[in-house]
Simulated assay, not measured.
Amino acid sequence: MMKEPLLQASELSRYFGTEVAVNNVSFTIHKGEVLGFLGPNGAGKSTTMRMLSGNLAPDNGQIIINGVDLLDHPKQAKAHIGYLPETPPLYKELTVAEFLQFCARLNAIDKQHQKAAIDSAIERCGLTNVSNRLIGNLSKGFQQRVGIAQAIIHSPAVVILDEPTSGLDPIQIREIRQLIRDIANEHSVILSTHILPEVQMLCDRVQIISHGQLMFNDSIDALSQKMQASSLLLAFEQPMLAEKMRHIPGIENIDTLSDYRFRVHYHPDTNPTQSLLQLAVNNAWQLSMLMPEQHSLEDVFMKIIQNEDTDA
């Protein structure tokens, strides 16, 4: 059964003068999903994040947050959004508890519920031991936690995080990633990042944007499928001629890497592995290696972006 949609963006476009920053972007996020938002610098990620959070009006399109139209009813819709920009909006002269009290008031949390909301945000973000310290005296990792705490203090339906692990050390990155996983249990999360492994570790779905256009919008499993290359690496104990393998059904091309090593490209629907193994046995080819190749996420990302550039 499909979970309820908490955010629906339809045909979003935004222009700066004659320049198109975002061009006809549409997508939906459901409850409990983490959506990874990828793209090179200047691709339109931050512009899209600002539109989704209500900080920038689209020139065209519609944004529905938890059933409320953001353009028609901005105040009501924004009550369902938590937003952490790339630079956390912190008052560093306040303590953590003072700042979150201020955020609770900004989000119009009832006075009788403010303490519970603050305590919950502090606990969920691992801030209990620093709640009475000045924000300006905290490490960048703890300041980022405070930024996330202000984004979730009012229990929004959708939490938008723009580069949440940027500039953190490896230990802090691991802690913030675990926090994001925990948040996703109760909210929908949009995660804008340039760290590709982060997408694989955290996200259910992935979107890739380039030059303001959505180039890929699918599940992390579909992205993993793209990482499966249609090629095999072969090695033999003795010199081998590529011509001996060219007639095998499905093989499209063979790269000769040396007299002993080859890369075999095949049609995705016709994997020649079994045929190659059978021929190697029948003809005593002394096959020493047969290994499927796999693209990295970076390879797939670059291919999607480069295909878009070529089409343009």
Score class of each variant (00 low, 15 high):
R105E: 09
P58N: 02
I183A: 10
A184S: 15
H211M: 09
Q294L: 09
L138G: 04
S10W: 01
A151D: 08
I195T: 12
N253M: 13
A117L: 01
V146F: 05
L290M: 15
A235R: 10
Q228K: 14
I118G: 07
D119C: 01
S296R: 12
K226P: 08
Q238F: 03
L90S: 05
Q228V: 09
Q278A: 15
W285N: 04
Q274I: 01
A121Q: 07
E198D: 13
N23L: 05
G17R: 10
E123F: 09
V206R: 12
T165S: 15
Q114D: 00
V281H: 05
N132L: 02
I152V: 12
N24A: 11
L161H: 13
Q8H: 02
G82E: 01
V22F: 05
E186A: 08
E175A: 13
K75F: 12
P268M: 03
Q286C: 02
D221A: 14
P292Y: 07
N271G: 00
A312E: 09
F142W: 11
M215N: 06
I251P: 01
F37S: 07
Q294S: 14
H154M: 02
A149E: 10
A97N: 15
S210R: 03
Q144L: 03
T310E: 12
P249N: 10
S155T: 15
R145G: 00
E86D: 15
P74N: 09
Q306V: 10
I109K: 06
D162V: 02
I305M: 11
I171S: 12
G39N: 09
Q112T: 12
S46H: 03
W285M: 09
A235W: 04
L223R: 04
